[in-house]
Design a protein around this nucleic acid. Structure first.
Lengths: 158, 158
DNA sequence: TCAAAAGTGCAGCCAAGGCTATAATTTGAT
DNA sequence: ATCAAATTATAGCCTTGGCTGCACTTTTGA
């Protein structure tokens, strides 16, 4: 069978950067996607906490759990992680609060989310699907794509 | 503090279906996104295996590992899971093969991937970003959105 | 006021998806 | 034919993100 030598890391690199999706290119892309996946939940939590505080004045474990559809124990563990990452503060039996960097992240995430939803709506996608899809898509949109979305919305103003 | 009653599951539902994103709606959306996340890797593997077989005639553990940028041990574990899910076949020290349902899934995933990339390109996003973003986005695109993407591409043919 | 309900926290379990290190098998070259 | 290199497999460990069950505070309301 083939047993092709498959270009070792340190290999020559004499030829032109061939136009085929080189292995390491794809590997880098997968790595990036993997990283994005890891930050998805963080972004979801921070965005949700900001939302709860904005509308109800406080973010409680049980509220987050209900909105996310997970058990409260899961939320407590996640919040512990967010605390380690200095995105939230909390004291036992007192609510959960965003730190400054938590708020900054929330603002960024929120803006991006709105833009993605607006874009999907401008494309003519039904609101329910737009919201649902945005939830998953928003975490994987590069700056270039975000810009393109914004441009499209601008060009399709009523 | 507020301590709002938060509409229990079986609750009356007398009032109008209020326009705010109801808790359970959002919870359902998050659940769906969570599910999508769980299937992402499956889809990536199946797509990659199909690709390797199409171009090189076989899919080997080490090839998959290199393309994905993970260790071979990780691949072996993932393949074991795919086997449990009846998407691939494999015998020790022999390659990895897609079952019928594996091939069907691969075909679907591949078509969707191409469509998403084509859409991003049609939007004017640079090829590199388009490819990278598609990798993450493709797993979160509903049928409705996919249709909208196809329509857009059609409408923007040169 | 004080007991029940609601909310919070903790321990321990599971599966997934990573890893390294070690063992086993196959392949290729001499 | 043999032996080294490549490939494949296994074992054991870690973290994350789920869960349930139990214990502990806080809040509420009779």
């Amino acid at each position: 069978m083939s047993r092709k030598p498959t270009a070792l890391p340190g290999a020559s690199m004499v030829g032109p950067p061939d136009r085929l999706p080189r292995e390491d290119t794809q590997a880098r892309r997968f790595g990036a996607t993997r990283l994005a996946r890891a930050t998805e939940l963080t972004e979801d939590y921070v965005e949700l906490i900001a939302d709860l505080m904005a509308t109800g004045g406080e973010a409680r474990t049980v509220d987050i759990a209900r909105r996310l559809g997970v058990s409260h124990a899961t939320v407590i563990k996640a919040v512990a992680r967010l605390k380690r990452e200095a995105l939230v503060n909390s004291k036992p039996y007192r609510g959960i609060f965003l730190t400054d960097s938590g708020q900054a992240l929330a603002a960024r995430v929120r803006a991006r989310h709105r833009l993605v939803v607006a874009f999907l709506l401008a494309l003519g996608i039904p609101p329910d699907d737009a919201e649902a899809d945005a939830e998953g898509i928003e975490h994987h949109v590069s700056a270039a794509t975000l810009q393109a979305f914004a441009r499209f919305i601008e060009d399709h103003k009523p």
